[in-house]
Design a protein around this nucleic acid. Structure first.
Length: 834
RNA sequence: GCGGAAGUGGCGAAAUUGGCAGACGCACCAGACUUAGGAUCUGGCGGGGUAACCCAUAGGGGUUCAAGUCCCCUCUUCCGCACCA
């Protein structure tokens, strides 16, 4: 058959044709209305920042999601597979500075360019509800949500120490600071500044965000663990130590080990603790030492060296009273006590805490044992002894209690005595959302000289971001330089006022965009709650692990807030979340600075979108890092060429067999149909949970290898046309999630008219897939000695007989009788010989 | 320091429940064919050995008829958190 000049696989002759067809038929990927009988499936991939071009990480992310969406379509689901643009953010401003292009223009033209790339890749997105976060019809709802949060005390303003990136010229959220550096500028150390900032009170949901993780069993453990650590729940006790000689003053400490309180031999305050000033009044020397300590700490914090600086303390010469024992203990200021955590003050128990031990040793503070290790005497208990498996000693009336019991008892005593209580502390901080940047959502507040902070009324939304603006990098909010924006009137009194000039963190935009996808044109509300009831929660969310904390915790918070606003009924945004691995090359993440970036456009130009997508799924399981090897793309492309030739040669036979059936296949037909149905079963299983598309694709390759090896039997008619038709049809359907262009091309070559996507996924016929003869390895003492062939239904006795009758086995046994024969049905035989 | 993931041929990887280690692909080697192409086809390809066989899943121990898979110890890499009381 191959003797004539044969048509070669040329993606550039196939893909553009289908791109045009699909672009002209947006209904193809459109979700159906909620009234449909079909079950719904919401598959979501994280929306890209419109930088101007997709990178390989995007290609991988969207290839995974698109494969799943296509599979679910073929399984008969009403699939929602939307896309949008996380379009606010700093790069647009930087580009404006560099090229003198307005951020809006720059962003929108990037979006247009990337949309073309998506089209080239053949991504099946429903663009009907495209979301572009920088447009007023989206960000007005950011403002609307802000006002709802403000009404409920979930949005508030406070003076606070904040992270400042000088290159961004703005504040960063804690989540955007990585190793003391800016998440966008890896080389830039984040400074600390004191600024008046807007915050979202995510801490109000700390406990619920933590509890919810237990139920999110469709989320990767890694993500759940990271979020748990980030929330950082810690159970303990707050206890007041009265300050000696200072009227009514108390130092409240937080401890997780109140059972060790009789061993507290000092109290340590953070240098910034408000009481420090009072306690050091008139002592200029100590004040100077403390401010030097604060400075040093600041530098250390800024260079991410906090853990490395020596523990230092300054004794204030003042005393506090242990409320349980009445003992006087010295008050110190220590550089390792953080004002931001707990109460900013601790009791120091050197006998039972590593850090306190180190500190006390350095400064000669008394070290006292108050817990004895179970089974050891006081003297034999190691020092410091930090375990909670112990018994109280030297603790007055509490002696003899075990640690846990003592904690409860001591808490009770504190509560009754009014000097303390059980307390849960979180590491999670409120979410700072103010940004001193232009390209973001304006915060809808007005500052009136008479009425102070006044929210902009709903009917005046959106507060529009002015478009004509000169971007400078002077620090401070650019919007403050725009009088038409800045100057306004007070909603309450109409008097001259000024607007809030900070804009919102772009993570606000991405915290709820996926709700807007269900109703993006709604101008009465962020979305219709009835639609949300149908579509939510998201069935599968897919994105990079770099968002495990940031975006995924904010989204969960936002969902809970919306639920409490009565807008939705789901507690969590997504039942299943998947974090795909990074795309790396030559052992490192692709980056411009390393010069190892591979452009998707180049790959598409050379090998076609199908091969590029398929390789990104074939080279590694989706959750692992993927090492990009161009030879591998070439290999995938060669595979597609083989399929192309195969289908092209025999499509006429298959097309001619339309409507024909076959009966009781034998020989080659049976062998090929068996392989086909095994392959269907394998891929269907992979889609149902494991998502190891690399092995799915390997299974298709195996099938194709067998089909090609047997193609003589297609030409000769040994394999009936109806069988050829089933083989090719099913093969094409199984390729559809991975190589949509070729699948569409083949589908039409096979004489099919409907869309591949609307064609049911093939079903594996278990009877056909079953082998009638199987190979069973025979081991002697666990070592492989022979392989026997038996019928699939062979019982234990038959297998045993066959194994013992095998010539090689007889030789190996050399007359000995096995003391034990292990038979694992269908798997192996192991003969144990002494 | 704490927490998590991982370590299998020259490379990417596979082995779904403890049951034939290396499927599938890349690279490479040999051959065929040729319209000399970014081809295509056939065969080979963990290490040692002429062979029968032996050895091999980071290293060491263990459990088991049987271990890449389970347990203990050690090493290495990556990721997250980190003076959090």
């Amino acid at each position: 058959m191959a003797d004539e000049k044969e048509l070669r696989y040329d993606p550039s002759a196939i893909e553009p044709k289908w791109q045009a067809k699909w672009a002209a038929n947006p209904a193809m990927y459109a979700a159906e209305p909620e009234t449909t009988e079909k079950p719904k499936y919401y598959v979501l991939e994280m929306l890209p920042y419109p930088s101007g071009k997709l990178h390989m990480g995007h290609v991988r992310n969207y290839s995974i999601g698109d494969a799943l969406a296509r599979y679910m379509w073929m399984q008969g689901y009403n699939v929602l597979h939307p896309m949008g643009w996380d379009a606010f953010g700093l790069p647009a401003e930087n580009a404006a500075l560099k090229n003198n292009t307005p951020p809006r223009e720059w962003t929108l033209s990037n979006i247009a360019a990337m949309k073309v790339q998506f089209q080239r890749l053949g991504m099946g997105f429903d663009w009907a509800n495209e979301v572009t976060t920088c447009l007023p019809d989206y960000y007005r709802w950011n403002q609307w949500f802000f006002l709802r949060m403000y009404e409920r005390g979930l949005a508030y303003r406070k003076q606070s120490k904040v992270n400042w990136c000088s290159l961004c010229a703005t504040v960063l959220a804690n989540e955007q600071v990585i190793d003391g550096r800016c998440w966008r500028h890896e080389d830039n150390i984040v400074e600390q500044r004191n600024l008046e900032q807007w915050f979202y009170r995510i801490t109000r949901y700390a406990q619920e965000l933590l509890d919810g993780l237990d139920k999110l069993d469709g989320w990767p453990d890694k993500v759940r663990t990271m979020q748990r650590n980030w929330i950082g729940r810690s159970e303990g006790t707050e206890v007041d130590f009265a300050v000696e000689d200072l009227d009514g003053a108390k130092i409240r400490v937080f401890t997780t080990r109140v059972d060790t309180i009789f061993g507290a031999t000092s109290v340590q305050l953070a240098p910034e603790h408000p009481l420090v000033a009072k306690l050091t009044a008139d002592n200029k020397d100590i004040e100077l030492q403390i401010s030097a300590m604060i400075d040093e700490q600041k530098v250390a914090r800024e260079t991410d060296n906090l853990g490395a600086i020596d523990k230092q303390g300054i004794a204030l010469g003042r005393y506090a009273i242990n409320p349980y024992s009445g003992e006087r203990v010295p008050i110190w200021v220590a550089n390792y006590v953080l004002m931001e955590y707990g109460t900013g003050a601790i009791m120091s128990v050197p006998g039972h805490d590593e850090r306190d031990f180190e500190f006390a040793t350095k400064y000669g503070i008394e070290i006292r044992r108050v817990i004895r290790q179970v089974g050891d005497s006081e003297e034999d208990t190691p020092m410091p002894f930090v375990s909670e498996e112990g018994i109280l000693i030297n603790s007055g009336e509490f002696d003899g209690l075990i640690c846990g019991e003592a904690q409860r008892k001591l808490q009770q005593v504190a509560a009754e005595g009014g000097f303390g209580e059980a307390k849960v502390t979180f590491r999670l901080r409120d979410w700072g959302v103010s940004r001193q940047r232009y390209w973001g959502t304006p915060i809808p507040m007005v500052n009136c000289p008479t009425h102070g902070l006044v929210p902009v009324p709903d009917d005046q939304l959106p507060v529009l971001l002015p478009e004509k603006i000169e971007i400078t990098q002077q620090g401070g909010s650019p919007l403050a330089q725009v009088p038409e924006f800045l100057n306004t009137t007070c909603p309450k009194c109409d008097g001259p006022s000024t607007r809030e000039t900070d804009t919102m963190d772009t993570f606000v935009d991405s915290s709820w965009y996926f709700y807007r996808y269900i109703d993006a044109k709604n101008d009465k509300a962020p979305f219709d709650s009835a639609k949300a009831r149908y579509w939510f929660p998201i069935d599968q969310y897919i994105g990079g692990v770099e968002h495990a904390i940031l975006h995924l915790i904010y989204s969960r918070f936002w969902t809970k807030v919306m639920r409490d606003l009565g807008m939705i009924e789901n507690d969590e945004p997504a039942t299943r979340q998947f974090s795909q691995g990074m795309v790396i090359k030559d052992g490192a993440k692709m980056s411009k600075s390393r010069g190892n970036v591979v452009s998707p456009d180049d790959m598409i130009a050379r090998y076609g979108a199908d091969a590029t997508r398929m390789y990104s799924l074939f080279a590694a399981p989706p959750d692992r890092d993927l090492d990009w090897q161009e030879d591998g793309v070439a290999g995938t492309s060669r595979f597609l060429s083989r399929v192309f030739r195969l289908v092209h040669r025999y499509a006429p036979i298959a097309a001619g067999a339309k409507g024909q059936t076959y009966s009781a296949p034998t020989g080659t037909s049976l062998a090929l149909l068996r392989k086909l149905h095994q392959t269907i079963a394998k891929i269907t299983l992979d889609f149902s949970g494991r998502w190891h598309f690399n092995t799915s694709i390997a299974a298709v390759m195996e099938l194709v290898n067998e089909l090609i090896a047997a193609e003589g039997a297609f030409a000769s008619g040994e394999v009936p046309a109806a069988v050829v038709a089933e083989l090719l049809r099913s093969l094409v359907l199984m390729l559809a999630p991975f190589a949509p262009f070729l699948a569409a091309e083949f589908w039409s070559e096979l004489g099919e008219e409907g869309e591949v996507l609307r064609t049911p996924w093939p079903v594996s016929d278990a009877a056909l897939a079953k082998e009638d003869e199987i190979e069973v390895p025979v081991q002697i003492n666990g070592k492989l000695r022979a392989v026997i062939r038996v019928i699939a239904e062979a019982d234990r006795a038959a297998i045993e007989a066959a194994a013992l009758a095998d010539e090689k086995i007889i030789e190996w046994l050399a007359g000995k009788t096995p003391v034990k024969i292990i038979i694992v049905q269908g798997k192996l035989v192991n003969l144990v010989v002494k």
